[in-house]
Design a protein around this nucleic acid. Structure first.
Lengths: 153, 153
DNA sequence: CCATTTGTTTCGATGATCGAAATATCTGCT
DNA sequence: AGCAGATATTTCGATCATCGAAACAAATGG
């Protein structure tokens, strides 16, 4: 197989990889009974411990108003709890509930476990190649996102 | 750097890579004045030539009703055109306009060009590693999406 | 040529989101 | 101490994307 066609194959594979990621998240959202935005917020909460409503809004790219509504939905579903920050009573701290931790783990732990196991099969040199590939991809995309924004209106 | 920490680093990098992809699409949607769903549809149209409304709906995972509304928006924005299929007049063929082709190319071509150039720097062996890594990742995610769906309710 | 199937649109309802205004609390200044 | 702004969240009203079901239009097969 020629290098050129390998490159073409990889280009297509990158797109399909993004679709696959999307399917995992869609399945997770379905099982949890959440929309994609709320799933994103819950993921942030589970990984990043308690956050204020505002921090969560920034992470998720939501307006304050949308965040309030989203927290409400997570709370009603039993996946998040709200407590006023006693140090600064304007703030509201939002945290994932044990139920959320448990269900998110049930959903994502096997994926992470198998993902790590899969990586462990590679040599260190191969892993470095993969890391660089991904890292440079991020840089490229961030730089291009910047350029695209500059095209504006 | 130990293999174990390399694996951990890559795991985190995968997540950030998805975020970066998301930022590119968000920037593109912003510049085109489209929401994410309509951008997805336009991408399908630009890559996949004219499609019927129904095929487009299936590709995008939308209900027929939502698709009609989406096509309307793309049409109003000047990015898509509708024509009745003369062979089967129930069908409506939707195609990207030249304006859409031009603007989508302006947005994504540099990314693709630089992406390919970047890949060209790797050896064939390295590219095979990358291809396998991505391909196995897709398989893993599809399989896990299936499992997760099975967890239902 | 009518009954059924297929493809799209219309309709009414719902849900997620936004910007702006309202509310609550904190901080700094005098 | 107390007031003026700044900051964090919520409420409000409006808009937009989406859905399911019904309507409509056109094809297909007895």
């Amino acid at each position: 197989m020629s290098k050129q066609s390998l490159i073409a194959e990889i280009t297509g594979t990158i797109a399909r990889s993004q679709d696959a990621t999307d399917r995992v998240d869609a399945a997770a959202a379905g099982v949890l009974g959440l929309n994609r935005t709320d799933l994103l917020c819950l993921g942030v909460l589970v990984r990043g411990g308690p956050l204020t409503a505002g921090q969560l809004a920034t992470e998720a790219g939501l307006s304050p108003a949308a965040m309030t509504a989203g927290i409400e939905r997570l709370e009603k579903a039993g996946y998040a709890g709200r407590t006023r920050d006693e140090a600064d009573r304007r703030r509201v701290l939002v945290a994932a509930t044990p139920l959320a931790e448990q269900r998110v783990t049930e959903i994502y732990a096997p994926l992470e476990k198998l993902g790590s196991a899969r990586l462990a099969k590679y040599t260190v040199a191969e892993l470095e190649t993969i890391r660089d590939f991904l890292g440079q991809g991020i840089e490229l995309q961030n730089q291009q996102a910047e350029r695209i924004r500059g095209l504006a209106k």
